[in-house]
Design a binder for these strands. Structure first.
Lengths: 281, 281
DNA sequence: CCGTCTTGTTTCAAATATCGTAACAAATGT
DNA sequence: ACATTTGTTACGATATTTGAAACAAGACGG
């Protein structure tokens, strides 16, 4: 928009981020472990079972390899076979998450106020934390039925293409932000460009007005608002977000009523002593 | 107790379970993947950070190996470094759990009634599913503060040494039960023996009276009751349990009041059409 | 019912990714 | 500043992983 070079790209330029070593298989990384984890990461709420051949096709692996990896994952208890012979995630996988859930006890204090916001907005209210190049929802409040997806802790999404993600980015200061943006641009070149201006504007707005909005940037049918909360003492950056089905979201209400209310809620959440306040607040 | 051979051992004898191939590294399993997963499994609510050397020590690995594996896990987004250089779980790990959480939507219908039981008993109420040789809690209701541990979805525990586990075992019929017991005896020989009679009695009681109890078998300071609910259509076996701090649990109340009430609750839960009723009900 | 597909597991030798030593780098502590 | 501890990187030896092919087990269709 501004002479062909967005401000976000300028920021990203300022970040350090090595190029991946010529597309070659990074010899410092354990490829077998990666393949195994990629199998687990294949699953979603949409696809809860896979045949051996399907896993092999998606990951570009030999079916014999998949067979052995899945056998290992079953042995470890993270995969199970259903009656039809498909591989499914085993509930045991929740055990890996438990330490993280247990470490975020502070969210229990927030569910009450979150519930009020959910009722007020007739939407979903979530807490999201930054993890690498994604956000991860750690707490969800609201009515599960009226949404196209299933709101639960564990939902992940892109930092640069969602309200939650942008609110989280707004918490990063100076070089940290530049580095993260450089990483994102490296990982998703085309997407990053496509959303660059919106992302830059949202980050700025979070810092000035205390919230940002997104109209289907991430989930096409969801209008979302988000506000940065701050950083916990163990280094987790947290945002508070609200999502509405598009048909139920009137833009003027979102911008002039819900947004300011969410920002106000964030201010009161920050008084609880859980979060180190953001540098701009 | 009965001429030196417990009934549970007789059951376990009837189960098929190969011996592990002479302690040799099972060549059909991917050792690198196992090591990586073992690193992730090291974490708990008690220990949320590890130094490289500590991981190496616990798993008996070379520190160079640990370095490479952790680098890989960080690259995948499941591990992060804290300011002191320790390895911590990254929130991204929750993303692996999400598909399982999303698949157990039925639990939302149960939280209301569960909350009533929690209030009535002044304890914690949980839903647990069987996964391999463990149970996994998928839903928790109650007051987190009065417990020595942090009640959250994802807590795992032993099938043969807990009320929840025994209630789940009671759902297995015939050969399936024998196989599972044989597996458990193979995996935990000494523990299995130590708890064999209690486990057998609890399974029998679940089938006749609809519940079983445990006085510190798993967590020393927790008295627990559990009742089998049944099997969901995607093959998950579910139990409903209630836990109380020991000092607050009067045995006669547990046995004669709470137990029957829990069994009664289970009966009403089974009317909701979520579970295929157990073979003995 | 039998042959024909399809799909998954196992075997085995070849290939290559992993391991451990040792050197290096960094941080910690005295 | 030096000694000590701890984590990462390089590199050759080695053990693990890989993929082809054979095998086993169902599923399908005539």
């Amino acid at each position: 928009m501004n002479d062909g070079r967005t401000i976000l790209n300028q920021w990203a330029d300022a970040g350090e981020c090595e190029l991946p070593g010529e597309g070659a298989t990074d010899q410092a990384l354990s490829s077998t472990l990666m393949k195994g984890l990629e199998i687990l990461a294949l699953y979603s709420d949409q696809e809860d079972r896979f045949a051996n051949a399907e896993i092999a096709r998606r990951l570009g692996l030999n079916k014999a390899t998949v067979s052995r990896l899945c056998k290992t994952l079953m042995h470890m208890g993270y995969l199970r076979r259903d009656p039809k012979g498909n591989f499914r995630l085993a509930p045991r996988i929740l055990g890996l998450s438990y330490p993280v859930m247990a470490a975020t006890r502070w969210r229990h204090q927030l569910v009450g106020p979150m519930r009020e916001i959910a009722e007020m907005s007739t939407g979903n209210v979530t807490l999201a934390v930054m993890s690498g190049d994604q956000f991860v929802q750690v707490q969800t409040v609201g009515d599960p039925v009226s949404f196209p997806h299933i709101p639960e802790a564990g939902i992940t999404g892109p930092l640069h293409r969602s309200a939650s993600g942008r609110a989280l980015l707004s918490l990063l200061d100076g070089q940290e932000l530049y580095d993260k943006l450089a990483e994102l641009r490296l990982r998703f070149p085309e997407e990053f460009e496509a959303h660059a201006d919106l992302t830059a504007a949202s980050i700025a707005r979070c810092r000035s007005e205390g919230f940002c909005t997104s109209y289907g940037d991430w989930r096409p049918n969801i209008v979302a608002l988000s506000t940065p909360l701050g950083e916990t003492d163990d280094g987790l950056r947290v945002a508070l977000s609200c999502g509405l089905p598009r048909f139920r979201a009137r833009e003027d209400v979102v911008e002039n009523d819900l947004g300011p209310r969410l920002a106000e809620a964030a201010r009161s959440f920050r008084m609880m002593g859980i979060f180190k306040p953001p540098f701009f607040a």
